[in-house]
Simulated assay, not measured.
Amino acid sequence: MEPVEPRTSWTFVTQHARILAMILGDPEIRLRDLAENCQLTERAAQAIVTDLETAGYLTRVRHGRRNHYEVTPGTLFRHPAEGNHEIADLLKLLVDLDQPAEATPRPTADGDHRKHREG
Rank of each mutant, 00 (worst) to 15 (best):
V4A: 14
P6R: 15
P6Q: 15
P6C: 11
P6D: 15
T11R: 15
Q15I: 03
Q15G: 09
A21P: 10
M22W: 13
L24E: 15
G25M: 03
P27K: 13
P27M: 14
P27G: 14
P27R: 15
I29D: 02
R30F: 01
L31H: 01
N37G: 10
C38S: 14
L40A: 03
Q46W: 08
A47Y: 01
I48L: 04
I48Q: 01
I48C: 00
T50S: 11
D51M: 12
L52F: 09
E53Y: 09
E53D: 11
T54H: 13
A55W: 08
Y57W: 09
L58M: 11
R62P: 04
R62F: 04
H63I: 12
R65F: 02
R65S: 00
N67R: 02
N67Y: 06
H68C: 09
E70Q: 15
E70G: 13
V71R: 09
T72E: 14
T72W: 04
P73H: 08
G74H: 02
G74T: 02
G74A: 00
T75V: 14
T75I: 11
T75K: 14
F77W: 07
H79F: 06
A81W: 11
N84M: 05
E86K: 05
E86N: 05
I87K: 09
I87N: 02
A88L: 03
A88E: 05
D89H: 08
D89L: 04
K92A: 09
L93Q: 12
L94P: 09
V95K: 05
V95M: 06
D96Y: 06
L97G: 13
D98S: 12
A101K: 09
E102I: 06
P105F: 02
R106L: 11
P107H: 05
P107D: 07
P107K: 12
P107R: 11
A109Y: 11
A109P: 04
D110A: 14
D112M: 09
K115M: 04
R117L: 07
E118Q: 01
